[in-house]
């Protein structure tokens, strides 16, 4: 039996999730023995862009028409498709200001003279084609990637717990950013797996791994407001990494309510 054929692809993004694969320094060479990486632009100069793939990893957002076409072509040739990173799964930072038209953003950054840019609203790759696995994280965690890869190669399906960051944060016995410091911490709404890295370093969770299933959104907002934190502050913290999904979950509703009250315009 020949080694499974693997492709690793990046759409628009920082390449951080692909870099995390290269950061598996101890395991990289063994991985390369077990699979045949046939298409990986970031690490290879000769790439086969036609062979059907057993497993394909895609990171980044769809932010250009080219991205979209590329993504569809990857889907078409792959048996198992894995979304790597928060950009691919939830939209990530590039999707943070989707309420502004691309035109406005472009003018703000490039002024005139960049009309040639191929640009469309930044959206997660998972919005366009079906994925077999989703591995969030900004960037992904190496141990989760290795677990996923080992499981895929042995035909299994790894279990990634659908629990909030508080789960890990408490076991590390951090001082709670909400209870002790009265800060906006997205930990209770965000999917665990990072080992509560930020709170363990004294920084509240920014929600970079995307929301846990069915977060109690309203209770979180109330919790912050009860501690005298303004809506502006809550919103700026929450709408960073998973903006599109937070919008869907009700941030937008809160925006409207606030506008009606004459708060943030």
């Amino acid at each position: 039996m020949s080694a499974p054929k693997v492709g690793i692809f990046g759409l628009t993004g920082c390449a951080g999730d692909q870099l995390q694969i290269l950061n598996c320094e101890d395991e990289l060479l063994r991985i390369a023995e077990r699979v045949e990486i046939v298409d990986w632009v970031m690490a290879r100069s000769q790439n086969d862009s036609n062979t059907p793939l057993d497993v394909a990893f895609v990171e980044g957002v769809v932010a250009t028409e080219r991205d979209l076409a590329y993504l569809k072509s990857i889907r078409a040739r792959s048996r198992t498709l894995v979304a790597l990173g928060t950009c691919a799964v939830w939209g990530g930072l590039p999707a943070m200001r989707n309420e502004l038209p691309r035109e406005v953003l472009r003018r703000e950054v490039y002024a005139g003279g960049a009309e040639f840019l191929d640009t469309r609203e930044a959206r997660p790759a998972t919005d366009f084609v079906p994925f077999e696995f989703r591995l969030p994280g900004c960037p992904i965690e190496r141990h989760e990637f290795l677990r996923l890869l080992n499981a895929i190669l042995c035909g299994g399906k790894p279990e990634f717990l659908n629990v909030p960051v508080c789960w890990e944060c408490k076991t590390r016995e951090n001082l709670c950013r909400v209870v002790h410091y009265k800060e906006v911490c997205c930990g209770a709404m965000t999917r665990a797996g990072c080992g509560a890295r930020c709170p363990s370093h004294g920084v509240p969770c920014a929600g970079c791994r995307g929301p846990v299933e069915e977060p109690n959104y309203d209770a979180n907002i109330t919790m912050f407001q009860d501690r005298g934190i303004s809506w502006v502050e809550i919103a700026r913290k929450m709408e960073a990494f998973s903006a599109p999904v937070w919008m869907k979950l009700g941030l937008e509703r809160e925006h409207a309510r606030e506008r009606a009250r004459g708060g943030r315009s």
Binding site: P164, C166, W167, K170, A188, M189, N216, A219, M223
Partner: peptide, 13 residues
């Protein structure tokens, strides 16, 4: 149920 975040802090501690 409306007030609880289901963050599990109470169970952990």
């Amino acid at each position: 149920g409306r007030k609880c975040l289901c963050c599990g802090s109470c169970s952990m501690v």
